[in-house]
């Protein structure tokens, strides 16, 4: 396990870093959410970001997409500074963000339609991606007719249809029941194997972070900052066997004890402040 190394962010070779996060900081009013975040994410790399609720990991993801303006530092994607949502980047939201008045087909087509792709091409691509996420036959269904898992499959297909080079996952499976979540995790890994992209995977589930990531970024403290970056060193393609491997358990225990220390400390501080 390697400690996080500051200062690797600046001029890196294009192949080394697709996403460069450089001294990123965000405040809400007087409250500093996170500060001094430095991270480089490679072209075919999955980086998980894990931390306690309220640590600002979701906000950080929005900063990477340019949905939220940071108060310090910057994010560069392929060397371009991010100010508004860049092309080639797609987000999968925890809230799914499906438009209830659109069918599965129309929801998946949304991103393509906004970028003015010809109709024929949209249709072919949408059908291909609906198939890819295992929703063939549900093209005409409305979101309310789908289970949570199927809704998020739709959200995933919408993101993939734009053929992004960067996928930002905002706790995508957090509001899905445990069994379905596990199915979707391996489904996502399977899809990623067939078309690897850079992926930032924000989650509060330690297992999920370790299972998905090449590296796991642990956020700690208030304001939070990067406490540790862990190379998981798990083989790809990842299958269910990974879950029972000694290495998986080792990493998971390590992340768990790191976050527990913080939780206990926070509890102690709360006690003292009373």
């Amino acid at each position: 396990m390697t400690r996080h190394d500051d200062g690797v962010t600046l001029p890196a070779a294009p192949s080394a870093g697709r996403i460069e996060i450089d001294g990123l900081a965000k405040r809400f009013g007087p409250l500093s959410v996170f500060e001094d975040i430095n991270l480089t994410i490679g072209e075919r790399e999955i980086v998980s970001i894990v931390g306690p609720s309220g640590c600002g990991k979701t906000t950080m993801l929005r900063c990477i997409d340019g949905l939220v303006k940071p108060d310090g530092g910057e994010v560069r994607i392929d060397g371009q500074r991010v100010t508004t949502p860049p092309r080639g980047v797609a987000v999968v939201f925890q809230h799914f963000g499906l438009f209830p008045w659109k069918t599965v087909f129309e929801n998946v087509a949304y991103g393509l339609r906004l970028s003015g792709v010809p109709k024929k091409q949209i249709e072919a691509s949408v059908l291909r991606h609906i198939e890819l996420v295992g929703l063939a036959g549900f093209e005409k269904a409305y979101p309310y007719q789908l289970s949570g898992g199927m809704q998020q499959r739709t959200g995933l297909a919408r993101a993939l249809a734009t053929e992004p080079q960067v996928l930002l996952m905002d706790e995508p499976f957090a509001s899905i029941d445990a069994q379905t979540r596990e199915i979707l995790q391996f489904e996502l890994l399977r899809i990623w194997e067939s078309r690897p992209t850079s992926m930032v995977f924000v989650t509060h589930s330690i297992e999920e972070a370790v299972l998905m990531g090449d590296r796991v970024v642990v956020l700690r403290g208030r304001p939070s900052s990067i406490h540790e970056v862990i190379e998981t060193g798990l083989p790809r393609p990842r299958t269910r066997e990974v879950l029972s491997s000694p290495r998986f358990n080792e990493v998971r225990e390590h992340v768990w004890s790191t976050l527990m220390q913080e939780a206990e400390q926070a509890e102690r501080e709360l006690q003292e402040s009373r």
């Binding site: 997409d65 949905l67 949502p85 092309r87 939201f93 809230h95 963000g97 438009f99 970028s115 734009t162």
Partner: peptide, 12 residues
Amino acid sequence: AQYVEVADSYHA
């Protein structure tokens, strides 16, 4: 707000 957020992320 989440609908607007999705739209923004797709360059609406």
